[in-house]
Design a protein around this nucleic acid. Sequence first.
RNA 1: GUGGCUAUAGUUUAGUGGUAAAACACCAGUCUGUGGCACUGGUUUCGAGAGUUCGAUUCUCUCUAGCCACCCCA
Length: 469
Amino acid sequence: MAKNKARTKKSKKKLLKRPRKISKSKEVFQEQEHFILQPPRGMKDILPEEQLYWDQVRKVSERLARDFGFSRIDTPLIEFANLFVRSVGEGTDIVDKEMYTFLTRGGDRVALRPELTAGICRSYIQHGMQVLPKPVKLFSIGPVYRYDRPQEGRYREHYQINFDSFGEQDAILDAQMIQIASRVIQGLGIKSLQVQVNSIGCSVCRKEYKELLVNYLESKRLKLCQDCKVRLEKNPLRILDCKEDKCFQVAASAPQSIDHLCEECRIHFKNLLEYLDELDLPYVINPQLVRGLDYYTKTVFEIWSGEEDGRKQSLGGGGRYDNLIKLLGGEPTPAVGFGLGIERLIIEMKRVQARPYRSPRPRVFLAQLGDLAKKKSLKLFSELEKNGIFTAESFGRGSLKSQLRVADRLGVEITLILGQKEALDQTVIVKNMASGVQEIVSADKLVDIIKKKLKADNVVVYHEDSVNT
RNA sequence: GUGGCUAUAGUUUAGUGGUAAAACACCAGUCUGUGGCACUGGUUUCGAGAGUUCGAUUCUCUCUAGCCACCCCA
């Protein structure tokens, strides 16, 4: 026994080490100690107790998707790397620093998706969805990958909920997107959220604005931080949300994109704000809001959690991307969408102590005693299940005592006891756990009797559809 | 990617240069076929590797992971 234990311990330690990479022909891989009893950095399990939260996030968002007319779509985790380079944009952090890009055995350069919209757009074009009645509304949910340094609420694998709407350019869609995002968050019991909106213009006025901005920033060049001097060449818009104090000062008095919109974009933004007012959706206009993806035009928005003074975290964001479909080779199609980070939603749910719905619990426990009874109980269990009686068991346990302990812990209302004697007599003992009273019932009447008892108990039944949005 | 802090049973935490402890949890017994309470007992641990040392869980270094700030965003 002791020997056995020692071996187990040893093998566990051995398992903790990943096998060294074997040198393969001429290439010699770097020798490294790894661990296989934990996932790679920034990845984590979603454990059973967490699933309550996940179920709820899924349920709330799926219901809203349905109610607002969005159809589900799932696209591959892996796409050609160029899809993201083209859409998200070269020069963005996501593409330059954070993408998991690799070559397949066949030599294709592919990437784990760093966001969902690009793949959805690809699918939209590939399957000719432009012939469908507009707008085409798509809903997706799944993991995305970014090679970033992990910390709480920031993982290399995280899940996003994505809503996209294609083919409609009216600002009412933008407003509705913001409304849906807010509804998802509120539906999860998160009350304090802040909507930040901005307009970064279309390809025409943004170009003009960019020149204006660069001129201004060039004049203040000396006051900018090191990073921003580089940004000035590559992506000047990003200087606007630099957190360096001195850059912030410069940015604060920089020309603002909303003051330099073309007529069309200006009206679009004005309409959006009017629609938001109409929806009674509070928002903050943040002229420095610039998103990390290049495909956005006109409307951009983010949703932040937390109170005024508390720590704020972005729960999600989105915007309009009227040029993306064309850029990827489709018919010019206006579009608007947003994504929400599920892990962050759950962190926030926990922070505000929003209780997830409890999953249904078994109300009956089946205990068995002795070989014959054990055999019979296996069938009885599935008989109960077929009749819709959610039953728990602990077939692995022998003693009645330990089985009753489990039954008690589960909080069931009724325990069925099937022993040697009952197995021979074709009966079952029905024990009421609250009162301790038990009665002997003939096996063929058992299902009806239990059904009656459970009904009579008038216990609150779990409501599948009670989602408080 | 940069800087800082941390790593002890399943969980939350004590503690020590001489290989470890508490609480809760789990398993079992007291009760030969009856749960909750109580009592008794049991299982399980120093993140990985290297160095210093007679001896390292403790000191040093490296790696890994977690957290925090920056950055970025979801």
